[in-house]
C-alpha cells in the first residue's frame, strides 16, 4: 500500500526541501521504491538539491495538464535504483495546480511507488494546501524559534481540518515533528528553544532532531542529499529519522553540547 508523505512547515527556509531529499533518499537506500514530488511550482529547488537539474525535460505541471506522461516526466536518480524525482515547473505559478489534476497524478504514482514524498512550498496557500491534501502522513519541519513553531502549529491545524482525510472523516493524518538547525550550544545559552519546549507546544511525536551543520549547505551546493554523507552529524540524524519513520525505535542523538577537547579550546577550533 503506497504511502503519501508530505514535508511541510508553513514557514520558509526551515529545511523542507533538504528534508524531502534526505528522507526520499533514505527510504530508497533501505530498498523502498520512492518518488519525491516538488510542489513548489515557480520556485523549483528540489532538482538542485537532488542533483538532477540538468535532466529535467517535463515537469509536474506538464503531467497535470496532459502534455506529458508520468513516465516521461519522472527523473530517475543516478545513484539509487529505487529513487525518482518529479520536478516542479519553473515557468508557471501555483495556479497551474488543480486538486483534480494533483489527485490524478497521486493515484497514478500510488500504483508504482511505495512512498510518495510531497515537498510542500512555504505558506498555507494553494501549493501548500494541495501538497498536504492527499497525504497519509506529515513531517512538520520546524526550527527551534518561536515564529517557526507558531507557523508549524498553524500547519498542524490545517492538516487536521483541511486534508482529504479530514474532509472524508477518515483516520487523521499521522503527524511527525522534525526539528532542524538545532544547536544545543545556543539552547544552553537561552538563544534557542529546546527540544522539550517545542515538543510541549506542538504536542506531536518527535521524529528527529537535525543539528545545525556545515555539511547541509555543502551537500545542497553539490546536489547530493545530506543523508548520503555518512560522516556528518546531520546525515546520521536524518538516517535515524528515516528509521523511526519506518517504525524502528532509536534513541535521539545530537541533543547535547559537544564537549571540546583541551587543545580545541586552546586554539578555538571550528564548530
Amino acid at each position: 500500500m503506497a504511502k503519501i508523505l508530505v514535508v511541510t512547515s508553513g514557514k520558509g527556509g526551515v529545511g523542507k526541501t533538504t528534508t524531502s531529499a534526505a528522507i526520499g533518499t533514505g527510504l530508497a537506500l533501505r530498498g523502498h521504491k520512492t518518488v519525491v514530488v516538488d510542489f513548489d511550482v515557480g520556485l523549483r529547488n528540489l532538482d538542485l538539491i537532488m542533483g538532477c537539474e540538468r535532466r529535467v525535460v517535463y515537469d509536474f505541471v506538464n503531467v497535470i495538464q496532459g502534455d506529458a506522461t508520468l513516465g516521461q516526466a519522472l527523473i530517475k536518480d543516478k545513484r539509487l535504483e529505487n529513487l525518482y524525482v518529479l520536478a516542479a515547473s519553473q515557468t508557471r505559478d501555483k495556479d497551474a495546480l488543480s486538486a483534480e489534476g494533483v489527485g490524478r497524478v497521486m493515484d497514478e504514482l500510488r500504483e508504482s511507488f511505495e512512498y510518495i514524498i510531497c515537498d510542500s512550498p512555504a505558506g498555507i496557500e494553494k501549493g501548500a494546501h494541495l501538497a498536504m491534501y492527499f497525504a497519509d502522513e506529515a513531517v512538520v519541519v520546524t526550527n527551534p524559534e518561536v515564529s517557526s513553531v507558531r507557523d508549524s502549529d498553524r500547519m498542524l491545524g490545517l492538516l487536521a481540518s483541511k486534508s482529504r482525510r479530514a474532509e472524508n472523516g477518515e483516520e487523521p493524518i499521522k503527524e511527525h515533528l522534525l526539528l532542524t538547525r538545532y544547536s544545543p550550544d545556543r539552547v544552553n545559552k537561552g538563544e534557542m528553544l529546546g527540544v522539550e519546549d517545542v515538543e510541549e507546544i506542538l504536542a506531536i511525536r518527535l521524529l528527529g532532531v537535525i543539528p545545525e551543520s556545515q555539511s547541509v549547505l555543502k551537500a545542497s551546493n553539490q546536489g547530493i542529499p545530506v543523508i548520503l554523507d555518512e560522516q556528518s552529524d546531520a546525515g546520521q540524524a536524518y538516517s535515524d529519522a528515516v528509521e523511526r519513520l519506518l517504525g524502528k525505535e532509536t534513541p535521539h542523538r545530537f541533543l547535547d553540547v559537544h564537549k571540546k577537547g583541551f587543545l580545541q579550546r586552546l586554539f578555538g577550533g571550528r564548530e
Binding site: R150, D153, R154, I201
Partner: peptide, 24 residues
C-alpha cells in the same frame, strides 16, 4: 489539540477542551 488559526464556538453552552490550545 486546538491549533493556531482555529476557532471553536460552543453556542448556547459550555466548551470543554482536553488537549492543548495553541497561541493564535
Amino acid at each position: 489539540p486546538v491549533r493556531g488559526g482555529q476557532q471553536i464556538y460552543a453556542p448556547g453552552g459550555d466548551l470543554l477542551v482536553l488537549a492543548p490550545v495553541s497561541a493564535g
